[in-house]
Design a protein around this nucleic acid. Structure first.
Lengths: 194, 194, 194, 194
DNA sequence: GATGAATGAGCTTTCATTCAT
DNA sequence: AATGAATGAAAGCTCATTCAT
């Protein structure tokens, strides 16, 4: 299996760095190959084409994040706690990998519709986690019973995403993780019973 | 002044149509020129370069929207009403100009960091409107006094933006404006006192 | 019309020279452009792609030759005379444009099936001329009445083509035109009544 | 001797199949290796490079054919009979190996001048057979004494070759062997005394 | 002898921008 | 002011060949 061989990960990590440092449109395959310490052609032994690098990158990095997140959420008892874990983990993960933050929040969004559809496919796993928390919260009576699941999910995801994007565009110059409680509070309020 | 001559608006309107129908990366200057009914070279009598068309497009369209929005908000008494007007106008405006919705929510986000910084410059006017509502709501005692202005603004903008983007990506197949009350409710909850 | 503007012919003539001198696989677009005295991109204002240059080249050069040939053949009374004109003109034309001879006899045959099908389309006009002479000869009683048209055409074309190809592969070091009478004699014999 | 080891023939046979089914330009070494059931690198234990496979292919296949042909021709008494055997055997051989027919008539002609010169080297053996028949026919008084050997050979080879190529390009949808008598008749006529 | 992962040179085409008319 | 023909830089991908195992 290709994705278990060391060069696979090497190339993806190189892509993250090159895209973060040069921008999406200046991230030529040749640059990525050089950063990964392989020949240009080697890239194509592991990836179908350039787009495939980007999709794989997103799948690997976000997939791992979502899996870790799902486990952490499971541990918690209340919907409020679960939502807090989600916000905090999200902020923590991107704080710890600033290159990845730039790539997912800014650069990968410059890709074409085709690629973004594949990215959304991956994101679906994340959105499902949010949906589950909302339903759980309603069932437990923590959240208002008349909540529209889709809109509430859009509020939660939109707020978190906008917060991270703002932080990245401000060149990550304040501490993101410490915002988690306040953001969580806003969201809980939004979901809460009046 | 160039922006008062008829061809200026003609070219911007052509750009909106061409980008919406062909996507950002397939919106060549030649196509825009043809749609606008001018020669390729004529574009450069009105705009410095291609990026300048896109920035101007955003300035013209969003600028007009923000101005209109500011006036409508002024009319309302309470922060909750003001926020409702903001949400509803936002949804209404994009519902009525579906080309513009595609361009601002999907296509223009594929531009490079450089361009997006300029776009954010324009958006700042919109964000200030949000900030004013939040402050006004706190001052009037409608909103919780401990609200973090920036985070709250990010929640409001993030939620609205995510809602519109989802609607565009779902090919605008449901009614966006009718979501305004529910979205407003979520946001007011988020801002509200416990 | 593009094919009437001077650069159209300029590029085709440049392609003939470059292909003849460098071979089909070493005839890069950049080389052709340079030889034609235009920019690389200019090529694409006149031709859809590289293959289109080659097809157009063949159409222009062979098309003109076939047209000229048809006129010359018309002038002659007997099938034998017509056939002689065909052989002689064929040899004469390629003798006078040695670059073209190399391109059509050697280099263009290295193209892919796709291109060769288009080339055959053009050649059809030539083969029709041969067919007409054969039918005319049979009708006039010059040629044997039981001749199979297709096979006879293949003999005539095959013989002429092989003769020219041999001459080109021998680096054109003998006089091709002076072979016309002997070749004609062979063919007439082949077609003749016993 | 390498050409006596089983993998040598295996690779050549694989090459014929791959080239016939994929075309010259789509016949990558990797594909040939896979078809032959060997590793890519193994090819280079038996052949100097890719071109060497093609030359060897032609040598092996055409060499065997020419040898067989020479023997068959020897058996016959008259030049006319010998020529008939040649035409018939030629048609028969390619009828029976349609892959080989595609490769020699269409695909190998897409090779570069270099390779075709080597191919011509092999073909020389075939052309010599033709020459011998012509000389024999003249000597025996069957053929016209003033025949130009080279031109007559070009007529014979050109006619046969064109007939086979046409048959291949028509997707081999008629019976080639049954054309032998008519083709033979044309050629004999061409060679004959008036 | 056999393998197959790795190499890296090489080329067509697009398109924003210019400038002579 | 307006035109539109001409420019030319820039990059993803293929595949014959090698060589460590």
């Amino acid at each position: 299996m290709k994705r278990n061989r060391p060069k696979y990960g090497q190339i993806i990590d190189a892509a993250v760095i090159i895209i973060a440092e040069n921008g999406y449109h200046q991230a030529q395959v040749a640059k990525i190959a050089k950063q990964a310490g392989v020949a240009d052609g080697t890239i194509y032994l592991y990836f179908k084409n350039k787009e495939d690098i980007l999709i794989s990158l997103f799948q690997e990095k976000m997939g791992a994040f979502i899996k870790k997140l799902a486990k952490a959420i499971e541990q918690k008892e209340t919907a409020a706690e679960k939502l807090f874990i989600l916000v905090q983990n999200h902020f923590f993960t991107f704080s710890n990998d600033r290159h990845l933050a730039i790539v997912t929040q800014l650069e990968l969004r410059q890709s074409n519709k085709q690629l973004r559809l594949k990215i959304n496919e991956v994101l679906k796993g994340y959105l499902i986690l949010i949906d589950e928390i909302i339903r759980y919260g309603i069932k437990r009576g923590e959240f208002a019973s008349q909540l529209d699941i889709r809109l509430t999910r859009q509020m939660i995801f939109g707020t978190i995403d906008e917060t991270v994007t703002s932080w990245v565009m401000n060149e990550q110059k304040y501490d993101l993780v410490s915002l988690a409680p306040a953001v969580h509070h806003l969201l809980i309020n939004g979901c809460g019973k009046k």
